[in-house]
Write a protein that binds this DNA or RNA. Sequence first.
DNA 1: GTCTATACATAACGTCGCTACCTATCGGCA
DNA 2: TGCCGATAGGTAGCGACGTTATGTATAGAC
Lengths: 108, 108
Amino acid sequence: MKAEVLKGHLEGMLLAVLESGEQHGYAIVEELKSRSGGHITLPTGTVYPALHRLETAGLIAGRWSVHGGRRRRSYTLTRAGNRALSEQRSSWREFADVVSGVLGVEPA
Amino acid sequence: MKAEVLKGHLEGMLLAVLESGEQHGYAIVEELKSRSGGHITLPTGTVYPALHRLETAGLIAGRWSVHGGRRRRSYTLTRAGNRALSEQRSSWREFADVVSGVLGVEPA
DNA sequence: GTCTATACATAACGTCGCTACCTATCGGCA
DNA sequence: TGCCGATAGGTAGCGACGTTATGTATAGAC
């Protein structure tokens, strides 16, 4: 997966992963890897700042906990996060249709 | 259409527009607007630098001409540009499938 | 004892689309 | 005569954000 194509789509995917329930950063990376069939392997330097942005924006809420001696920060979707997720979904649809149309590939 | 989502997809679309034949920058903007159903209206500060990048990369070839007293720079796809376009198409397909999968929207 | 997996973090960097602005010609309209 | 909108091209500076590189720390395996 080429680098910059993620721009603007990453945060929606993070929200989508969190929709199934509370998860911590490291687990989100693993989950995203499996959901994408191995195509998306995010460096931690990408995902942690992104989570901080989402939390600052009020789309997710984080809390610290400890498991097996290791600290974790686990996140859940806020109500605003849920709204943002459905907006992301519909704008992704629109975007994908437009790009597919211009590129002349049948819309997936 | 939100801003940065274009990142990494713009150049492929420019190549796609040029696939139908030689066109100049201003006409490309209009063509893109119509092909996208009005969803993509590129500012000239976006498209001209992008065309310069594509030309520098050897994916398109430009030449000056004059029509009705106005100068134009018209571009055509090079062989490398054609290759790049089909690569863009297949990587777009892959990307779109992956994102749709993660977001949980049926692939268009 | 060293290595790998787990878990989080941040500084510096590069890319690239956008905003804002500039130059210039032509045709229409007042 | 003068202004405006469409046509046609250009650049400087900015900002957003994903990446690279690096650092900290614990647990378990070998």
